[in-house]
Design a protein around this nucleic acid. Sequence first.
DNA 1: ACCCGGAACGTTAGCGGTAACGCACGGGCT
DNA 2: AGCCCGTGCGTTACCGCTAACGTTCCGGGT
Lengths: 347, 347
Amino acid sequence: MAIEASAPEGGPPGRPATIYTVAEAAGVSHQTVSRYLKGDSLRPGNRERVEQAVKALDYQVNDVAQALSTKKSHRIGAFVFDIDDWAPQRILAGAAKAARSAGYILDILRVDPEDNVSLRNAVRLMNRTMLAGVVVISPSDPILRLLQLERLRVPWVVEAEPVLGPDDDRALQHPFARVVSHLADLGHERFFHIGGPVSWLAERNRREAYRQTLARRGLTNCGETQGLWGAAAGYEAMASYPHADAPTAIVAASDQLALGALFWLQEHGVRVPDDVSVSGYDGIADTAYYWPPLTTVAVDFPRMGRNTVQALLALEGGGGPPDLGMPVGELVPRASTGRPGGGIPAP
Amino acid sequence: MAIEASAPEGGPPGRPATIYTVAEAAGVSHQTVSRYLKGDSLRPGNRERVEQAVKALDYQVNDVAQALSTKKSHRIGAFVFDIDDWAPQRILAGAAKAARSAGYILDILRVDPEDNVSLRNAVRLMNRTMLAGVVVISPSDPILRLLQLERLRVPWVVEAEPVLGPDDDRALQHPFARVVSHLADLGHERFFHIGGPVSWLAERNRREAYRQTLARRGLTNCGETQGLWGAAAGYEAMASYPHADAPTAIVAASDQLALGALFWLQEHGVRVPDDVSVSGYDGIADTAYYWPPLTTVAVDFPRMGRNTVQALLALEGGGGPPDLGMPVGELVPRASTGRPGGGIPAP
DNA sequence: ACCCGGAACGTTAGCGGTAACGCACGGGCT
DNA sequence: AGCCCGTGCGTTACCGCTAACGTTCCGGGT
């Protein structure tokens, strides 16, 4: 990469203006300038002159000095672990946007989920910088446990769904239940679940939604797998599955898992959805162009990020630990699901 | 999302330790503590006692105060525009990692490429925070032009490839040339290029590599399109193409564009690679599971991010505007490319 | 024994903001 | 007229760190 670079290029003033230089230019005390910035009432004459001076000198407040003085910066830290996955990505985007519109910058700190030295360092880094708070984006359980050991000196909020136990019938309202219901409505009775890593709360909830929906409607669970989120894991799940139970519906916990499954099916000459139906989850944009187009659930991940940031800011305001409810998602029915077929033909 | 939250929970000390509290605990002056932290030489006795005190009080330097005093924070800002695309994503990951390992935090600022008020705000935000510098990740031309108008008061570096004009035969070394050569080697003579937005330098260079490679080898360019990066644009390009010229090789400027093209071909019963070959570019992981698996170029995007950050830090050190050369990428031949077929059959 | 110089350390003054206090001024009340 | 209180403003201190300068102390050279 060639690189175009630019030195600072001093603007009109040799050095950036401060409230003192502005005060001098306006013929008032620096405190009056501070008040002006805060929006306090000034005598009309002064107000105007300060305003002029601010404009003339192109004054901009120094966040660093402000933070030192108020002991609170306009920054929110975000811990992210699997930044390459689609869902965390989108959550982060939502969080960043919400933070920005509340006047904060979101500092993203990618932490290696394997390496707990990295986490320790990240915590120390956050502690040094007088953050207003920290949001933790979709951590797995081990991460969360580690995090509790470290002394994070600022308020923090974990972005996480409510924990849905086997007795908690809110699981039936989880968006993941929608896609299972959709398949049930089409007449499917034999299901197979390709799951993600069970150390993720999000995965366990999807699984719970899957189980409860099957149970509620008297359908058969032909099996569940677990593994990573990517396409490779989806392929692997299909390859290692003992096909004796002949499910007609394959319900994947992510779109990428579904892609891997689709690939295996293509490879083995299984027709989708004629022989088996396949569904994904997440709603990544490309799924419309998979072959066949993938039925999925478009989850509003940005909303989760937004809610988390807002919860953090509310925590400042003195609210208790907030509960913002379930993920929100919409079924996107496409060609990969249809009426039940004969299942995967014997080789 | 339910949210687990945690208040700060005062650690051992009611408030975080400062160099003054450490100094008092160690029976020295705060300046001695500062020197200890800087690594200056101390009398053995003092050194030990300061070390003890630091440990006992769990002292961590306050970056904010340090930044105010030195007028330089350990932060680098990153402007990103299309954070949803894969390439900027990976570049950013590389940049973040490089920044971290140099002791900096990368502040990511997503800017809406359409909205120049957003850019203006972002610049103001960066100016307020005493950043060590700013990297601009793969901007399109209009962005770059706007950016030059704003007064960014810190050093900044744009991540960008060298500009490859029609006369510059370095284009033949661009990784994009690899995939074109690969197809030529297979015997293809008639090519069609599905391009991205020409306002992107990265796109123009790919296009130039495409053209020069064809020219050099005496092959036929049956057409070029331009549009967005996503699968929808790839599909659209195929749909609107007048197929009179009957290319046998379709060369897409991104994997997602290729996915859209594959979809259109499937939809129209065109066999890949038997009738036409299709290639992508970028090397996103899922391409191995497209149907058929997509030939692509795995580009080392993180490297670009890393280089950009290092260039910025070098700029501080007083180096001139650095040139770090071309993108680096490796051909990944897969099943979507093969010997030339009959082209797209007439409908 | 004297002087000199450098190492180690303390003191003071900033960096650019905010917060707390105090003072002058003016209008409404008794 | 005298008192009180609220408003607008200036002065001073402080946030936690670094930089510049001053002081002390010690060893070596003559």
